[in-house]
């Protein structure tokens, strides 16, 4: 097996607040293989968006990458200078941010926004080359070339989202991080946008990390799924395996809350609320809500380990 395109080692991101350090990402280790579609799910506030920002090296004070490595195709991004990082962004790794369609500049035409990104991160191209590239990326996301000369308010939500995808792929990066790319869209538009992203991902051989909390969307669009809870990973495996046989009690609960066609009107939630990251409970962070918690879970943090080939889990149930 070839080396992973993105390899994250013991990544920690803390936010320093007056009340203390918030451990938003607390020791995450994972590999993303070349061309893989990886999903990352978790409840709001579990650190999944922080992780995306850390991969892009976009954590702003009071936040800081505390320690760990983010190795993209052999280069650790964490110690890079801001100048070099700027050339990595968009060229090698790009982000479709949450609510991306609202991130477009309302007073600039689509063409200018795509060109801005390219010039800012890559430097010299002739006007003609840039315009060719604009047309090419718009076509890639199924938008008509006329869209280049429109303003964002003239576009529908789905079209704006496509423009954001076009910007993200404009330099053919190796990795795309999509942070809830379709959360504000209708089901039909959502399906269409996801299908576009997937087609591009395949055609261009880009690796994708899809972040979200919608297990349905994950089931439809990714191959490997990582489940995050309160800043740490709970489980990571191939998506079918997770749906068929979830190992971590949190994943089991998450899957049991899903609406499926067969079981109408059965509602289950996960009891309790997520712990405060300022004063997290000792031991396993999930133990206060865990129906299978044992004595050891209250004081010892479970180890993140591969218990079977391709199946990672952090739970005392599986520790020998």
């Amino acid at each position: 097996m070839s080396a992973p395109i993105l390899s994250v080692q013991d990544l920690r991101v803390y936010y320093y607040t007056e009340a203390g350090a918030v451990k938003a990402v607390d020791g995450v280790t994972l590999d993303v293989a070349r061309g893989m579609k990886m999903g990352l799910v978790g409840e709001s506030g579990c650190g999944k968006s922080t992780m995306a920002m850390a991969f892009m090296r976009l954590i702003k004070p009071p936040g800081r990458i505390e320690s760990g490595q983010v190795v993209l195709d052999g280069t650790d991004l964490v110690p890079l200078s801001e100048d070099r990082m700027r050339r990595v962004r968009l060229n090698e790794i790009s982000l479709i941010p949450q609510g991306a369609m609202n991130s477009l500049n309302p007073v600039a035409r689509v063409r200018k926004q795509i060109i801005d990104g390219i010039q800012d991160h890559n430097g010299r191209f002739s006007r003609a080359e840039l315009n060719d590239r604009v047309e090419e990326v718009l076509e890639a996301v199924d938008l008509r070339p006329e869209v280049a000369d429109m303003f964002p308010h003239e576009l529908s939500g789905g079209m704006k989202q496509r423009v954001c995808v076009a910007i993200a792929i404009s330099m053919r990066p190796k990795v795309i991080i999509a942070d809830e790319p379709t959360s504000a869209l209708d089901v039909v538009v959502q399906r269409q946008v996801m299908e576009t992203i997937q087609r591009l991902q395949q055609e261009l051989g880009i690796s994708m990390i899809l972040i979200g909390h919608d297990m349905g969307l994950m089931a439809q669009s990714i191959e490997h799924l990582a489940v995050m809870y309160s800043g740490r990973l709970a489980e990571l495996a191939e998506v079918n395996a997770i749906f068929e046989e979830p190992l971590h009690p949190y994943t089991q609960l998450l899957i049991s809350t899903l609406p499926v066609l067969g079981a109408k009107g059965v509602f289950r939630g996960i009891p309790g609320i997520t712990p405060s990251l300022l004063s997290p409970p000792p031991g396993c962070l999930f133990h206060p809500r865990c129906p299978q918690a044992q004595e050891i879970c209250q004081h010892k943090v479970p180890t993140w380990q591969e218990i079977r080939p391709g199946r990672w889990v952090a739970c005392h149930k599986y520790e020998v």
């Binding site: 576009l155 529908s156 789905g158 079209m159 089901v187 039909v188 538009v189 959502q190 399906r191 269409q192 299908e195 919608d214 297990m215 349905g216 969307l217 994950m218 089931a219 439809q220 998506v239 079918n240 749906f243 899957i255 899903l258 609406p259 499926v260 066609l261």
Partner: peptide, 25 residues
């Protein structure tokens, strides 16, 4: 049918259909 066919069911075995999808836009 289009709406129901676009529901992302949380089941990897129940995939979105392959038919072309046209949106309002």
């Amino acid at each position: 049918q289009l709406l129901v066919g676009s529901i992302p069911w949380p089941d990897p075995k129940r995939k979105w259909g392959q038919d072309a999808v046209l949106t309002q836009a």
